[in-house]
Design a protein around this nucleic acid. Sequence first.
DNA 1: CCTATTTGGTGGACTGAGTCAAATATATAC
DNA 2: GTATATATTTGACTCAGTCCACCAAATAGG
Lengths: 305, 305
Amino acid sequence: MLDSQLVEAARDFNRFYTNFLGVLNRAYLNTPFTLTDARVLFEVGSHEGISPVTLSRDLQLDPAYLSRMLKRFRNEGLIETRPDPADGRGQLAFVTDKGRAAFQELGRRSNAQIEARFNELASDQPQRIVAAMRTIRSMLDPASTAPPAIIRAHRPGDIGWIVQSQAKAYTEEYGWDMRFEGLIAEVAGRFLANFDPATEHCWIAERGGLNIGSILVTNGGDGVAKLRLLHVDKSARGLGLGKTLVDECVRFSRDKGYRQISLWTNDILHAARGIYVRAGFRLVSEEKHRMFGPELNGQTWVLDL
Amino acid sequence: MLDSQLVEAARDFNRFYTNFLGVLNRAYLNTPFTLTDARVLFEVGSHEGISPVTLSRDLQLDPAYLSRMLKRFRNEGLIETRPDPADGRGQLAFVTDKGRAAFQELGRRSNAQIEARFNELASDQPQRIVAAMRTIRSMLDPASTAPPAIIRAHRPGDIGWIVQSQAKAYTEEYGWDMRFEGLIAEVAGRFLANFDPATEHCWIAERGGLNIGSILVTNGGDGVAKLRLLHVDKSARGLGLGKTLVDECVRFSRDKGYRQISLWTNDILHAARGIYVRAGFRLVSEEKHRMFGPELNGQTWVLDL
DNA sequence: CCTATTTGGTGGACTGAGTCAAATATATAC
DNA sequence: GTATATATTTGACTCAGTCCACCAAATAGG
């Protein structure tokens, strides 16, 4: 059965990760806290006003054990508890300043451990690991919500990411050949080489430290802004990110005094075309080409500002 | 720092997975074994003839504790130990039939737990989870970093990877600014755009599906081959990969009838310089520049073929 | 060859993390 | 009002895991 292999593999991973976490959790050996202490402190610190029941349910701890632990923390001045005004039986836990300091110190140690691990890895491995972790988590824990996407200016490495992610995506999805990667690498390279912050910009959409989308505006001269390299990673489609990115470009171009935005795309990229249409672009020319292997319909769209 | 979000995300996953494993491990509650018992029994069962030292190292257990545990297992007829013929101090542990039965029963329970989880998921989710688990494992488990490095021609996405990994590395290590990324993106883009397989080549060093190094030869005209974009990821340094890549380029250039190879580098890249020197390159010119921010010593090296 | 040091394994003694059962007080259901 | 469920606490216990000291065999150094 196919399933049994998967189960076996998952079990194997669990054994491995049990060991791995065991090693990481040794970090607490130099502190006065046990792993469980740390988990509780962390939970109280990050959900102020949490009740012991919730705590014991979330962390799977014996209420008696937890009660004593909270008492200890109270005596050590790490937390405070107040009666729950809404329920005479319950109470709410808060960290004191001292508790917060301890909790942040634990966080720092924990981060340092992981950072040390990540530093031993190849440059793009941490991102892949985190992406994989997110995959697992999103499936095993449907309640977990993806962190919100943010849009920011480009940073070192981002331009390479744009080239790589788009090259891979279009090769896989449409069978384009490497000339496409060559084209975007050149476009991206020229953008950086002649970058004029006053009239040009690159936006990267990022979610939880992972890049998920990109777009850029370059100065085409003659009052025309060129919109280029719009792309949204397939893991982030359907969120309206493409529209947001395009809107951002339009707003930027208008602010900077361009009179028109133009862009070049290919008709098979339906999702992108929909975005352009809704943003008010109009198709001005179209020609068949074979620049990337398969026969394509190249299109030029413009928007007057 | 750039990485802090990733670290945070990894820590978050670890917290989640600690809980998750905690729940799964409740499977042992109905058996006479603790989680640690089960881990040891599993390890002995799947590595017959394993020695207690190895066991205590692999599972991070106190040798005294383990010794007592093995004694208990021996008394209960679950395992047998024989003296190690190769080392009078050591011993080797084997499971008995009864032990094997117990160990398989534990495996069944464990599988059942995971199966139950998987059954609640959509049809393709288990596969994706397992794939993600493999990703994580292959990167975090040093033992599985074993696969040898291979060197191959470039494929879609590789050029973007070159740009990204080098931009990140040189920004972090030497503080170069984004103009550097622009330069290499342009170089890489032009390479692909005008790619002539008869006289040019790109090599990617890969290990276990991950890119770890690159180099390329372009036609500089006039019988001169240009060696460009040599880079080895920090996770793969010290393996002689740089040398191998350069040698490959030299051989290729000789085969293709070039009369000389030339390259441009910066003197602070000591490791690279060592490789060039050993390959027989000689320094022909040098000039200070500030192309990437900090003041650098650009150098041109050549090798007559 | 003898001596010093390291490594594999074991027993004694302890501790404290975590469990189980019972008690108290408040809330909710009918 | 009674009955039952929920939140928290206290008492009493146990056993998983640790620390230290020791023995026996192996290895290293002179």
